[in-house]
């Protein structure tokens, strides 16, 4: 009696979360995949063909990849710099970290709107430039005629919004590295850069890997900030899925986009797992 109880208890405790995940994640996932590769209840590649033949398709892929490529490395570098700097601070460390993580608490749409209020025609940036006499009249940063400025604005907003999470992961990683490793390197003649690249960076590889995977996956899902700042001026993958779902009411093509995003994210994750390989033998 006792034993039977014991073996069942763990499953019983896990069950709610398993059922929850199955209902709200696995089921919709399977449905979405099926929706993407079927037509009228029969398997078909029609949705994928429609998606690939769409005018915005190549543009959306290009923009999404360019954004990820521009945003993720900058975020990693900034987060590493922030993490290393805060590690040197004794007093007020918690406060600094708290301030830095404020963007984490803001939803991405709110962040997009916040940057819109800065960058739109009557926004703070134009007022500031105008008051310094740097521009004659309100400049337009976010239109389809200024794709580079728009791309840049979106990248900056994304970096502002998403660096904190990378920093949190990296700070956690840095905290795991005992200071004696850096000190030993210092005693044996390593300068600050050598210490960083030859000691600190290899030792926070696991944290770096998690941060890269998380940030890249999120970068491929970029939408709200793009939508808030540029509307449909800069098509991205999730934006296209949204358009097909809500404006064109074509759930099949929307599903095809969703599946494509998932495949890209999974591929990126695999690439990172291989490229930033963490050898357990080389961990502390």
């Amino acid at each position: 009696m006792q034993n039977i109880k014991k073996t069942w208890i763990p499953y019983l405790l896990i069950a709610p979360s398993v059922i929850f995940l199955a209902l709200l994640f696995l089921l919709p996932l399977i449905q979405t995949i099926w929706l993407a590769v079927s037509e009228g209840g029969a398997p078909s590649l029609a949705n994928l063909r429609t998606m690939a033949g769409d005018l915005n398709f190549r543009l959306a892929i290009r923009n999404t990849f360019l954004l990820a490529l521009a945003v993720v490395p900058v975020q990693i570098v900034i987060a590493l710099a922030m993490g290393s700097m805060v590690a040197k601070v004794d007093g007020g460390r918690e406060t600094i970290l708290w301030v830095w993580t404020i963007p984490l608490g803001i939803s991405d749409l709110a962040a997009g709107l916040l940057w819109l209020s800065i960058l739109q025609n009557s926004g703070y940036l134009n007022s500031l430039l105008f008051s310094f006499g740097l521009i004659e009249r309100q400049a337009n940063w976010l239109s389809y005629q200024t794709p580079i400025a728009l791309f840049f604005a979106i990248a900056v907003a994304e970096i502002w919004r998403g660096t904190a999470i990378v920093m949190v992961i990296i700070v956690a990683g840095l905290n795991q590295v005992p200071k004696e490793f850096r000190e030993a390197a210092e005693v044996f003649g390593a300068g600050p850069w050598t210490r960083f690249f030859r000691i600190t960076l290899p030792l926070i590889k696991p944290a770096l890997q998690s941060a890269l995977i998380l940030r890249t996956v999120l970068a491929f899902e970029v939408f709200a900030v793009v939508y808030a700042l540029g509307g449909t001026n800069m098509p991205v993958l999730v934006g296209e899925a949204y358009t097909w779902q809500n404006q064109n009411q074509n759930y099949g093509v929307a599903a095809a986009y969703a599946v494509l995003i998932m495949v890209i994210s999974l591929a990126a994750t695999l690439v990172y797992l291989k490229a930033v390989r963490v050898d357990p033998e080389r961990l502390p």
């Binding site: 005992p178 004696e180 490793f181 000190e183 030993a184 390197a185 005693v187 044996f188 000691i199 290899p202 030792l203 080389r282 961990l283 502390p284």
Partner: peptide, 13 residues
């Protein structure tokens, strides 16, 4: 100078 640390600080990687 060179130093031997009390907790070794041998680089794991």
């Amino acid at each position: 100078l060179a130093m031997v640390f009390q907790n070794y600080a041998v680089f794991p990687h």
